[in-house]
Amino acid sequence: MTRDEIRLARARRESAEARTRLTGTLIEVQKRLKPKALIEEALEDLREKADEIAADAIETVKKRPFTAAALAIAVLAWIFRAPILSAIGDVVEKMRTRRDTE
Rank of each mutant, 00 (worst) to 15 (best):
W78E: 08
R96L: 08
K36P: 01
R10M: 05
M1I: 03
A16L: 08
E93V: 03
A55E: 07
E5F: 01
I39W: 03
I88H: 03
A18W: 00
A87I: 11
A42N: 13
T2W: 04
A87C: 09
L38K: 11
E17H: 09
K34N: 05
D100S: 15
L43H: 12
D45G: 15
E41A: 12
A68K: 02
E17T: 02
K34F: 02
D51F: 03
R64G: 01
V91C: 08
A11S: 15
E40F: 05
D45C: 08
A74S: 06
E41S: 14
K49Y: 05
I79W: 06
D51E: 15
V29D: 14
L8E: 05
A68L: 03
T2F: 04
E102F: 02
D100T: 08
K31L: 02
R13V: 03
A11D: 14
A50E: 15
A87P: 01
R10L: 09
A72Y: 00
R98A: 07
I84E: 01
E102S: 06
T97Q: 06
S86C: 07
F80A: 09
W78G: 05
I53R: 12
R98D: 05
R13S: 09
R64L: 00
M95K: 10
L26P: 00
A72Q: 08
A87G: 10
R19L: 14
E41Q: 14
M1C: 07
D45A: 10
R7S: 05
A54G: 01
E14F: 14
R47S: 14
K49Q: 10
L85W: 09
D4L: 02
A9T: 08
A11W: 06
L22W: 07
D56H: 06
A74Q: 06
T60G: 01
K94R: 15
K36N: 12
S86D: 12
W78Y: 15
K63N: 12
I79H: 15
D4Q: 10
A37E: 08
R98L: 12
I53W: 01
R96Q: 07
R21I: 00
R64A: 04
M1N: 05
K62R: 13
I53E: 03
V61S: 04
A42Y: 07
A11P: 01
R64Q: 14
R19D: 07
D4H: 04
V75E: 11
R99I: 10
E14V: 03
E14D: 13
